[in-house]
Amino acid sequence: MPINPDQLRTLVVRPVLAALDLSAPDVAENLIMGTAAHESHLGDFIKQVGGGPAMGIYQMEPATLNDCYENYLDYSSRAALKAKVDAYLAVSPALASSTGSGDQPDKASQLATNLAYATAMCRIRYYRAPAAMPSDPNDINALAAYWKQYYNTPLGAGTPEQFVADYQRYIG
């Protein structure tokens, strides 16, 4: 059963975007909601269908997550942004009780288990794109084209038409 889109938007996406304080919050909000609607049908599945590595409601691959850190967040000039993102990482109770240190589980697993962290990483993925996001937050066709180019990639299996259809079906 999908996540309620109004609750996802108001309880997770909007507060995370506000905390990250990056540009274009209205466009980013709709783009991220559309990404969740298309990639996982708002959480109908959190592990990639067919056995692939993508995880979470945004179906981000661990390699993409690692790239976001290695080639963007790990630069010292972005330490404050990295700290904001990493603040969403959850401490694993199992690790904390076994080691006494409150160690964090690997970040890739949190794409599936931690909505706020997954949302922050989805935003970072889009923030790194070389082109500006569409200017109109309500132009779903433009959001779909942007998703295709910078999230799914031109070689990915998804289409802008599927993104639009899933946005309309799951978000309205």
Rank of each mutant, 00 (worst) to 15 (best):
N152W: 03
I3N: 02
C68S: 10
P15F: 09
A145H: 03
A132S: 05
K47D: 11
N138P: 14
L20M: 13
G100L: 09
I57N: 08
D86Y: 04
A19N: 07
T99W: 02
W147F: 12
G52A: 10
P53F: 06
H38L: 15
Q104V: 14
R9H: 07
Y117C: 06
A24R: 00
F163P: 11
L22F: 01
D166K: 01
G51C: 12
P25F: 09
M60R: 03
A165Y: 01
P160L: 12
P134A: 00
G102K: 12
L73Y: 03
P5I: 09
L115I: 05
R169C: 13
C122A: 15
Y151S: 01
I32D: 04
P154W: 13
P2R: 00
T153Y: 07
G100T: 12
I32H: 01
A165M: 07
C122M: 14
L143I: 06
E61L: 13
S23K: 04
I46S: 06
G100M: 07
A24V: 07
R128M: 15
Q7A: 15
I32F: 04
L81N: 07
P62G: 12
P154G: 15
G56M: 11
D74G: 14
A131M: 08
R123S: 03
T153H: 08
I46P: 02
D26M: 03
G158Y: 01
Q149H: 01
P2Y: 02
Q110C: 07
A157C: 14
T159R: 09
N30S: 12
R78Y: 15
N30V: 12
L22E: 00
Q162E: 02
D67Q: 08
G172L: 10
P25T: 08
L89D: 03
